[in-house]
Design a protein around this nucleic acid. Structure first.
Length: 690
DNA sequence: GCTAAGTCTTTTTTT
DNA sequence: AAGACTTAGC
């Protein structure tokens, strides 16, 4: 018997290298033990996982038995597309099977929502529960906070966002409140007793209104599978559970995986500890570092360290940066591509020059034949790109921005959605509270009273127009109440259009830039029309919000060429031929707000690593020398000097080339001047801390 | 009881 | 630069 027949290698696996194939084929047959794939940046992770899924299909696993957990909806779609392409190579039957889709592919949160709706009856949950996004949750927290009288304490009580952050951290890390306060929010520790009371009331409020927040989607899921019978039932339904971006899962998520797959059989997780960048959301590198030894026998580990993306020069620099990290699965990425050019450290005077430099480079590369879409500008915080956005708009260069303020978070969009949500569920206090106050002359007091009345009354909304409101508002209120009552009767998407019509005068009254916002409302109506019903629209929008904001520059058409602007977090998993990183400066990266502990600083270092490893061929790290202080009157000249990020100390400079822009005139006075400035600089740096 | 104006705090990354 | 809270005025 020849080797070939004993180990037949299906041709659809031909494109993989040895390690990738090893991962794809792991545990062929039924006895697939737990598998950890450490997949470095650009090592073909998605491809490997997609092959593994296709291989499972080839072995006869039904797509409905595969639970595929990814970080974002977009990642899930991409994965499924690839699986379908590979399955087409296996056989026509498998192609059809894959074409039918994977019902259980998505984010932890969206899969959680689906499971909970299905099992709602058995865990005492209303199957029609609504889902609050972060801002809704913060609003509810605020409501409760006021009701408990915590806002009028003599010493200032933490604000709604902080309260929610503390609550969320406690839930996601599964730590005690005391510990969470101690480690992450020491300045709020004095409020522990009040916070505990607040959180208890917050949970009760959610339950009274049949509302779940993001954390609940995981928490209820975890609670559900902590019941042995349900755990077995859910665990058996999914013969295979595959988790992407495992380094960014939190304690709660790993607990829930373990509950479903106690012995790890059928469990595959993929990740890269060097790219863990979500600890602010409770994610912990420990999940991936400790994964193998959770099981007996321990999980098999496969490392993918061959990089197919970047030039060796870029990889060498990125490896040198991440080598400074303290704890990780050691791996250095390698590549067989030609060396390429070193990453460039570009020194510019200020943010205005930074924007000008980026535009010049982007245009030059486009002249050289590189499409805008193959280029990206990355940054730590969404507002870092403001200058550049202005410059791009002025120069008529189309761009799309990822990350930062979402379309759905804009006040006017939230207003319309609040009315729509309230019309669906009049007991939704958060939506109602916001919706009712849209009427001029009605504030928190009247709104609260109306909601109390509705709560007390029997379900059904016949009495809405009769609610007590101040005299001058009567007519407006009756018109509004009638509209809200009528929305349920219209066929979708009529309600959104009627609502938009009603909202227009409010828009004029509330905002100076009403016409810009009006465009967003129309955009919302267009998005709404792509959903089959009001219910589906409202529930699915919270979990899968549209990606990019429709900017004033006008959203570029799909087939048009445009430049990508993105926060580093939103750039996860993506790649471009040329990447420019803005503000590679201490204070921005690491962010001033994240230098509290060594753990936070390490995460900022990984952030730089993630940014660098997005680049295939060209990488510019831009270092503005000074920053103007915002908030000063008129054309103030107050500024601070910044220095290159601490993650690229001098001893690593050999991995980079350096340049200044605009190029320094070789004038005799140049040196003297710059030295004088340097002395000045040191004094100012000290002054910053006075 | 509502709104508008003024003061003080917080300020990132996202499902 | 925005949001939360307080205070003054209608």
């Amino acid at each position: 018997m020849s080797d070939d027949t004993r180990c037949p290698r299906p041709t659809y696996l031909d494109g993989l290298n040895d390690a990738q194939r090893d991962a794809a084929l792991h545990g062929s047959g039924n006895a697939a033990g737990p598998l950890l794939i450490i997949a470095g940046a650009g090592s073909g992770k998605t491809n490997t996982l997609a092959h593994r899924v296709a291989h499972l299909l080839a072995e006869g696993v039904d797509p409905a038995q595969i639970l595929l957990l990814t970080f974002s909806r977009r990642a899930a779609d991409e994965m499924i597309r690839r699986v379908q392409r590979i399955a087409a190579k296996v056989s026509p039957r498998h192609a059809r099977l894959a074409q039918g889709g994977f019902p259980w592919a998505g984010t932890f949160h969206s899969v959680g929502a689906r499971l909970l709706r299905e099992f709602a009856g058995r865990i005492g949950l209303d199957p029609a529960f609504t889902i609050h996004d972060r801002e809704d949750s913060a609003d509810l927290m605020n409501l409760v906070r006021h009701e408990l009288g915590l806002s009028s304490k003599t010493r200032r009580f933490p604000m709604k966002g902080t309260c929610l952050a503390i609550y969320s951290a406690a839930v996601n890390t599964q730590n005690r409140l005391t510990d969470v306060l101690q480690t992450s929010f020491p300045w709020c520790a004095e409020w522990e007793a009040d916070l505990r009371q607040l959180f208890r009331a917050y949970v009760e409020a959610k339950q009274a209104q049949q509302v779940l927040d993001y954390d609940d989607l995981l928490l209820y899921w975890a609670q559900m599978v902590s019941e042995p019978d349900l755990a077995r039932e859910v665990g058996e339904r999914f013969r295979h559970v595959l988790v992407d971006e495992f380094q960014d899962t939190n304690h709660l998520q790993s607990a829930l995986l373990r509950a479903m797959k106690p012995d790890g059989r059928g469990l595959t997780v993929v990740g890269d500890d060097a790219q863990s960048i979500y600890s602010f959301r409770g994610a912990t590198v420990r999940n991936i570092l400790d994964f193998p030894d959770q099981f007996d026998p321990p999980a098999r580990r496969v490392t993918l360290d061959r990089n197919y993306r970047s030039t060796p020069s870029i990889l060498a620099a990125a490896n040198a940066v991440i080598a400074q990290a303290r704890e990780r699965f050691s791996k250095d990425l390698w590549s067989e591509r030609p060396a390429g050019e070193k990453p460039v450290l570009v020194s510019v005077r200020d943010e205005a020059d930074q924007a000008a430099y980026v535009v010049e480079q982007v245009l030059a590369r486009r002249e050289a034949g590189l499409r805008l879409k193959a280029q990206a500008v990355l940054f730590r915080a969404a507002h870092h790109s403001v200058r550049l956005e202005i410059e791009l708009t002025r120069r008529n260069i189309p761009f799309v921005k990822f990350g930062g303020l979402k379309f759905l978070e804009a006040a006017h969009v939230k207003d319309v959605l609040a009315v729509l949500r309230w019309s669906q569920n009049l007991r939704d206090r958060v939506a109602g509270f916001r919706a009712i106050q849209l009427l001029p002359g009605i504030g928190p007091k009247t709104a609260g009273r109306i909601l109390d009345n509705l709560q007390a009354a029997a379900p059904g909304c016949a009495l809405l127009p009769e609610q007590p409101v101040p005299e001058g508002v009567r007519d407006g209120w009756v018109a509004f109440a009638t509209l809200v009552e009528g929305l349920g009767g219209d066929t979708w998407p009529q309600p959104v259009e009627r609502l938009a019509q009603w909202y227009e005068p409010q828009l004029e009254r509330l905002f100076d830039d009403a016409h810009v916002r009006q465009a967003d409302i129309q955009q919302l109506a267009r998005i709404a029309a792509t959903y089959p019903s009001r219910e589906r629209f409202l529930t699915e929008l919270t979990l899968d919000p549209p990606d990019a904001t429709s900017d004033e520059s006008g959203a570029p058409l799909r087939d048009e060429d445009y430049l990508i602007l993105s926060t580093i977090h939103s750039a996860k998993g993506r790649e471009w031929s040329a990447v420019s990183l803005l503000n590679t400066v201490d204070g921005c990266l690491p962010s001033d707000l994240a230098t509290g502990s060594e753990r936070e600083i390490e995460e900022e270092m990984r952030l730089l690593y993630v940014a660098m490893t997005r680049a295939k061929d060209h990488l510019d790290l831009i270092v503005p020398q000074r920053f103007y202080i915002t908030g000063q009157s008129g054309m103030g000249d107050r500024h601070v000097y910044a220095s290159r990020t601490r993650f690229i100390p001098n001893r690593l400079c050999g991995h980079f080339s350096s340049r200044s822009w605009p190029s320094i005139e070789p004038a005799v006075t140049g040196d003297a001047q710059s030295r004088e400035r340097a002395i000045d600089l040191a004094a100012r740096m000290r002054d910053m801390w006075n």
